[in-house]
């Protein structure tokens, strides 16, 4: 059996309420195709995405984790997405230092009107993660 045919990566998306989640909603209403393996968690602001959320998802075996927020300058709370960006940089940096797969996490800016972008980036990420294969942590017991 070919692994690639059956393997459906598990992706978790943390979407900010005001932009990305609304964008995702719009994509849905417009019947755009969104990867079925994406599980969306709505947060009020990308600034709410605690690095621990991402770490926990990663360690529990999620194959990919998406952080999404309003474009810089557009944050509903003025600065939440700037904080999110720093946290993302930090996480990526830690992943790199420890030799973990930093390709499995990503940050995107998706506004409320960018349904096509939402559809596109989720599709691209899902494909990329599929190429990476399953997260080895899914099988690891001794964590």
């Amino acid at each position: 059996m070919n692994m690639n045919d059956t393997y459906m990566p598990t992706i978790i998306g943390f979407l900010c309420n005001w932009c990305s989640y609304t964008g995702a909603d719009l994509a849905g209403t417009a019947r755009m195709k969104i990867p079925a393996s994406l599980r969306v968690v709505r947060v009020m602001c990308s600034g709410r995405i605690d690095p621990l959320f991402v770490l926990k998802g990663f360690l529990k075996g999620a194959d990919g984790i998406m952080m999404m927020g309003c474009h810089p300058g557009d944050c509903h709370y003025q600065k939440g997405n700037y904080n999110a960006r720093r946290r993302f940089v930090m996480l990526q940096n830690i992943f790199e230092s420890l030799g973990l797969e930093k390709e499995r996490i990503g940050l995107w800016w998706v506004s409320a009107s960018e349904a096509p972008k939402y559809a596109q980036v989720t599709k691209e990420f899902a494909e990329k993660v599929k190429e990476l294969g399953p997260n080895p942590l899914r099988e690891e017991i001794f964590l």
């Binding site: 690095p51 621990l52 996480l91 830690i94 017991i141």
Partner: peptide
């Protein structure tokens, strides 16, 4: 269900990575 086994107490690596994200900088 997923792994057939669980290290107890769980979460050591989560603790270390999480602490890292809090204070390594």
């Amino acid at each position: 269900k997923l792994k057939g086994g669980l290290k107890v107490p769980p979460g050591n690596i989560y603790f270390h990575l999480g602490r890292m994200s809090h204070m390594a900088v």
